[in-house]
Design a protein around this nucleic acid. Structure first.
Lengths: 309, 309
DNA sequence: ACCAGACACAACCAATCGTTGTGGAAGTAG
DNA sequence: CTACTTCCACAACGATTGGTTGTGTCTGGT
């Protein structure tokens, strides 16, 4: 069964004549006749009663008509859902628990009329995300990308700086420190599990470890946040780094501590990638929202030198 | 866009491989490839990301999948609706604007999970409708039929009594009466256009006119409700009878008045005809709904004497 | 009786859809 | 590194579908 057949049936039902339906559809009367005949043959019922004055709905036709319209409506909506241009803004937030997702969610909360979808591109690095943006798979993506690596056709704006904090268990030497300097971490193990090589995250943490002589272990597989929290809570040596706004769900039972970093404060610089010249109003509003309502960034910050200030 | 293409897409999405989808659909892997390619070309979007391990949903594919499933469900229901045997309950409501249609619609509203279709048998009287029920063209029909005229194999139950009201224009002598008695209408012209001789409606109005000495003109052709309303609004002599729940769309501009009738209240007795022993659950539920949720009928009612109380 | 309107049938051509055969890319085992 | 396997895409070709134009049949009105 075919969308054109249903459209033809609806046209005949509404005009009452094959010829009028044919004109409406831009095909010949004979083609309408064949489509209707095929549809009736497929359904094994008579949908239309033919008279010399035109055609009317049979009982089965009456029953079928609303169903046919419903199918056509669903078809139209299905096409609409993926049609470039006329769909909600699609923003890649990397991961639903970290700062970009929170920021997009706050934006949506304060602008509920804005149609947008937050999605997560899986297994992609910044360059691949940029390609996804170029291809229109997503309309925008939060990534860390230096200016010289931004491909042509992509517009990039650094809109979200997330200060990093140390997350440690109660037995850790820094557990009761009100704050710490990156240099204080030299020699400590800092564990960032589940970072895949080749991603901008790996590059960021590599630069961070080189800048401050940290021993960052970014290799082991990530067995889930719960396992990470368990390991942290039990260890006096292990620490991890989280964004200050990240919403990991660690139960109070773990008794984990966030230790802000300062002097300088390492910040993860989220750059919003979008197609150059994309005029989508929701995109414009999101950019404006991030520009104006972003959290205050400390003065003394560190970012990798491949990131533009 | 084609149902097979959607089914193919869903199959690939669920199996994760073109070959597995092809096996499921009983076609070759190459055919699956072509169908998906055609669908993607039509939508101008990439739905599936191909790898050497199989295929996964792209972002657009994730968005499109539920829509595709919805279309397929609608298609299935459309075919189901006219498939002989196992199809939704088909109820003949005579005319979409009068009480039975309203009652069936209310039933459907309160039981949205009940699959039923409301249809109107055209040009048929009660005897022909009973035959249609026997033959299975429809499963149930609202008619006015006395017990002794119910054919064998048909079960009839009086489930919907509709009190009649007088509908008049502003110049009519009864226009400002809060209510009227049928006897008050003696001598007035009551016009019921478009009632074909030989139908139970004609018999009902004949009995009504004989009982109260009305002058019912049921002959002239019916030029549509709009013409009837125009005629009523302009005439000081003309009146018509409508069911108290009927939904004729008369614009306020006509300034027509409904005058309830009492002492006694003529009621049109709708009897639901169905095949004896039909156990269709929706039919059972509809009967029960009508029995329990029907509007209160006034005590002092008139019906033709060939109707069973 | 004849004509006009409305739909169906027939013949034909183009486009589509399925098949089989084959190729290329990427992961995997040795 | 090479060979093999897996998976999807491309090519060629026959069958089917779907469109067109031309014609036929039925019926209601003149």
């Amino acid at each position: 069964m075919n969308g054109e057949a249903l459209r033809t049936f609806v046209a005949v039902a509404e005009t009452g004549q094959f010829q009028a339906a044919a004109d409406e559809l831009g095909i010949s009367q004979q083609a309408v006749s064949k489509r209707i005949a095929a549809l009736e043959r497929h359904l094994e019922v008579t949908l239309l009663v033919r008279t010399t004055r035109g055609s009317g709905l049979s009982l089965d036709g009456q029953v079928f008509l609303p169903h046919a319209k419903k199918v056509l409506t669903a078809l139209e909506q299905a096409e609409q859902a993926v049609r470039p241009g006329s769909r909600p803004l699609r923003v890649d937030v990397l991961n639903r628990r970290i700062a970009p997702a929170q920021a997009v969610y706050r934006f949506y909360r304060s602008h509920p009329e804005m149609h947008l979808d937050a999605v997560t591109l899986s297994n992609e690095n910044a360059a691949q995300a940029a390609r996804a943006v170029l291809e229109g798979t997503v309309d925008a993506s939060f990534r860390a990308l230096s200016a010289e690596r931004v491909p042509a056709g992509i517009s990039a704006e650094r809109l979200l700086d997330v200060p990093l904090e140390l997350l440690v268990g109660p037995a850790h030497p820094l557990a009761d420190a009100p704050r710490a300097r990156p240099a204080d971490l030299a020699g400590h193990r800092v564990w960032i599990p589940g970072i895949r090589p080749g991603t901008e995250w790996a590059a960021f943490y590599r630069a961070l470890s080189e800048a401050f002589g940290l021993s960052i272990d970014a290799l082991g597989p990530h067995f889930g946040d719960e396992a990470l929290m368990d390991a942290l809570a039990d260890s006096a040596a292990l620490a991890t780094l989280v964004g200050s706004g990240d919403r990991y769900l660690w139960p109070q039972t773990h008794d984990l501590r966030r230790i802000p970093l300062h002097d300088p404060t390492p910040v993860y610089p989220h750059v919003l990638l979008s197609r150059s010249g994309d005029q989508h109003p929701v995109l414009t509003a999101l950019r404006e929202h991030l520009r104006t309502s972003g959290p205050r960034t400390p003065d003394d910050v560190w970012t990798p030198d491949w990131v533009d200030r």
